[in-house]
């Protein structure tokens, strides 16, 4: 799912992985570490929100290209 920042959950989690590895590696400036820490916390919050508040979107591929339309009648 893309959000307003155009970043997917997968991209977020990958970035989070990177941040944890960098922080735990310890080979960076404290300033940089602090910025990474803040980014990491933000990513966790966003991911948690995305996971717990999202609503499934179901579309139908209509043409030979990537055009889609909402698919009706697939709800619970």
């Amino acid at each position: 799912m893309k959000d307003q920042e155009g970043s997917t959950l997968e991209a977020r989690l990958q970035r989070l992985d990177q941040i944890v590895a960098t922080l735990e590696g310890g080979d960076i400036e404290l300033e940089k570490g602090l910025a990474l820490f803040e980014e990491g916390i933000r990513l966790i919050r966003e991911s948690e929100k995305l996971i717990s508040q999202a609503e499934l979107r179901v579309e139908e591929l209509i043409g030979p290209g990537p055009e889609t339309r909402a698919l009706e009648g697939t709800g619970e």
Binding site: I51, L56, E60
Partner: peptide, 9 residues
């Protein structure tokens, strides 16, 4: 539920 599903019938 964050997934976007695209169906081709």
């Amino acid at each position: 539920p964050w997934t976007r599903v695209i169906v081709r019938g």
